[in-house]
Simulated assay, not measured.
Amino acid sequence: MQYEKLQEEIKNAMRAHDKNRLSILRQVHGEVKNIEVNERRDIVEADVDAMLKQTGETLEGSIKAATSEERTAMLKEQVAILEEYLPKQVSGDELIALIEKTIADLGAETKRDMGKVMGALTAATGGNFDKAAAAKEVGSRLA
């Protein structure tokens, strides 16, 4: 998601009086802004995507630790909101086809090449794939 799109979504949530959406988007915006201030550089789309993903993972951890049903419900709703903005994850047949192509392109043959294959997959998808499933599939294809 582009930084400008995040700012626009915050405005839309304010107009719609959607407090939950506004809260989570402002949280992500604050984290992204911290990157800009602390690292003294402009924000890129990957920064916003990384913050969306990281915030979602943090919320999922909070859901597991939560004792209040009301708080858990709110956190689940916020995770659902964040998932709307995350890039689509590569999975299933699409992931298998990408693995086959990557192995062929790299000429990978042994388990020693697994790191190269996983690195290439990460670069090709921006890290948006099921890493556990990919590792299992790659491992089964390498000798």
Rank of each mutant, 00 (worst) to 15 (best):
E84Y: 01
Q7C: 06
V28Q: 08
L98I: 01
E8A: 15
D18C: 12
L82A: 02
M14Q: 14
S91R: 11
S23V: 06
I81A: 03
R112C: 02
S140E: 07
A50P: 01
G56T: 10
E94R: 01
T125Y: 02
L25W: 10
V32M: 05
L95S: 11
D18H: 10
L121N: 04
A80Y: 02
K76E: 07
L82G: 04
S62Q: 12
K101N: 10
V44C: 08
A108C: 06
R71Q: 15
Q78I: 08
G30E: 12
A16L: 12
G61V: 14
L59I: 11
S62N: 11
R112F: 05
R141K: 14
A66H: 12
E60G: 01
E69F: 02
R26F: 00
L142P: 11
L82K: 05
M1R: 06
R15W: 03
S140R: 04
N34L: 08
M118A: 01
K131P: 00
H17T: 10
L106I: 15
A16H: 03
A123I: 07
E36G: 04
T72V: 11
K11A: 13
H29A: 07
K19C: 10
E77P: 01
A133F: 00
H17P: 00
N12D: 08
Y85A: 15
M114G: 02
Q2G: 12
K116Q: 08
I63F: 01
L75K: 07
I99D: 08
P87N: 07
V79D: 02
G127S: 08
Q89R: 14
V117L: 05
I10Q: 12
N34G: 02
A124M: 01
D18I: 04
D113W: 03
H17I: 15
L98C: 02
E8M: 11
T110I: 12
D42Q: 11
T122S: 05
S68H: 04
T125H: 08
V44D: 08
G92L: 06
S23N: 14
L106H: 08
V44A: 09
G115Q: 09
R141A: 05
N20K: 15
I99N: 05
S91A: 12
M14V: 11
M74L: 09
K111W: 00
T55L: 02
A97Q: 06
A143S: 09
L82I: 13
E60N: 11
H29S: 15
M14N: 10
D130F: 07
L86I: 09
A80W: 00
D42V: 04
E4Q: 13
Q27W: 01
T72Q: 13
E94W: 00
S91Q: 05
A132V: 14
I81W: 03
